[in-house]
């Protein structure tokens, strides 16, 4: 696979749910490249944030279509989400940009 390390992770997912997970479960949520596998994600996170990853769960979020106006559709395409569990004591500070 020629997916570069820094291309694996697309963005952190900031939402109510992800904030709660980070706060109580030490789990962090990211959108990742659709082709990335768990191993690549683990490596990327460990390298970029200098933390130990205990577990990676991934899922493919379905594309969604909602109607907006008569003829136009609002679409979101399919994407891959990863929930990364860190070793106790490690944390990622994502929101202080």
């Amino acid at each position: 696979m020629n997916l570069h390390l820094y291309d694996v992770i697309v963005r952190p997912v900031v939402s109510e749910k992800s904030t709660l997970l980070a706060e109580y479960e030490n789990q962090y949520v990211f959108e990742v490249a659709p082709t990335a596998n768990k191993i690549q994600i683990r490596e990327a996170i460990e390298t970029i944030f200098d933390v130990d990853v205990v577990k990676v769960r991934t899922m493919v979020m379905p594309a969604k279509r909602g109607q907006r106006g008569r003829k136009k559709y609002r679409r979101t395409s399919q994407w891959k989400k990863a929930i990364v569990t860190l070793a106790p004591g490690d944390s990622i500070d994502l929101f202080d940009q």
């Binding site: 997912v13 900031v14 939402s15 109510e16 992800s18 904030t19 929101f95 202080d96």
Partner: peptide
Amino acid sequence: IPGFRKGKAPYRILAN
């Protein structure tokens, strides 16, 4: 704030 229901965003997110 996208990703949060009204009144649910934590302080840090809001400050950002």
